[in-house]
Write a protein that binds this DNA or RNA. Structure first.
Length: 270
DNA sequence: AAGACGGGCAACCGCCGCAAT
DNA sequence: GATTGCGGCGGTTGCCCGTCT
């Protein structure tokens, strides 16, 4: 069909935003909101396309943006979520209040990916089975054996070399709120994750605007999934303050997931 | 001191999904 | 059902700035 470009380039400004433009945008959105991005620049007196305005607002001007360096916990969360979700930056950002998808994407490409690579090469030299993360948009089910990708001394209380199939060996990212570790590259978990969508996790794992551990602690359930190479699976559910672990050893995966969701309050009991 | 280089980050581009018509 | 318009998303680009030589 062919779409027209998002905005006619003629007369529209590109490049870095000036303080004046920022003020115009903020003032307009404060007064009128941003119902229609395409119409907004004209109404606000900006020579920008709507897309540019939306991006500037969502990535920089929004009042709830948290600026500054990422904490180690945030970085750990990103790595874990990236393992789980792949390059779905907006989904990852939804779990890190105050952080934007763009910011997370930049952090990933500039810092975390390198760290992951270093970790992997280190692991490989130690004879571990380590897989490259698949950056596939359908990667919510991706699984691999690289744990968090952090140097163990920095983030994980259990060293990567210790990875056995027992619960104690699940890499613990020292109190991360949504600590999900999926292992076993031979397993396609997309078939066993049928009902776990993003809204479920964000509802379960985020509370308001805060990202502090204590905020997560009350509401939720840190999930650690571990798939040993056997046909059975082992999982633990730990809260932030006290690790209430539930151990499952099951062969029938669908029943397992359903029961697990009931446990964490994601499904009503029948 | 100055030019080269590389990293970090803000912004742009193009595609996709969805709702409205 | 087809078309159109919009918002959103992820990939990519290009500028700025710090470091190196």
């Amino acid at each position: 069909m062919g779409r027209a470009p998002c905005c006619e380039k003629m007369g529209l400004k590109k490049g870095p935003w000036t303080a004046e433009e920022d003020q115009l945008l903020i003032a307009f959105i404060r007064q009128h909101g941003h119902g229609n991005w395409r119409a907004l620049p004209k109404q606000a007196g900006l020579l920008r396309c709507g897309k540019s305005c939306r991006l500037r607002w969502t990535n920089y001007l929004r009042p709830d943006i948290k600026r500054g360096n990422f904490s180690k916990e945030e970085e750990g969360t990103i790595i874990n979520l990236h393992e789980m979700l792949g390059n779905r930056w907006s989904a990852i950002a939804a779990r890190l209040p105050g952080r934007t998808d763009n910011e997370i994407k930049n952090v990933w490409h500039t810092h975390l990916k390198k760290r992951l690579k270093n970790y992997q090469s280190t692991s490989n030299t130690k004879g571990q089975t380590v897989t490259e993360p698949k950056c596939d948009s359908n990667a919510s089910s991706e699984s691999n054996t690289m744990n968090s990708g952090f140097e163990s001394s920095e983030y994980a209380s259990v060293s990567p070399q210790d990875s056995s199939s027992e619960l104690s060996s699940v890499t613990d990212l020292t109190g991360l709120p949504n600590n999900v570790v999926i292992k076993d590259e031979s397993m396609d978990t997309s078939e066993t994750f049928p009902q776990i969508d993003e809204s479920f996790w964000s509802e379960k794992l985020s509370t308001g605007n805060s990202t502090t551990q204590s905020d997560f602690a009350g509401s939720a359930e840190e999930l650690q999934f571990q798939f040993p190479l056997s046909s059975s699976m082992t999982a633990s559910i730990g809260s932030m303050e006290h690790v209430n672990e539930y151990n499952f050893n099951i062969d029938d995966d669908m029943e397992f997931w359903y029961n697990l969701l009931i446990k964490v309050g994601g499904l009503p009991e029948l």
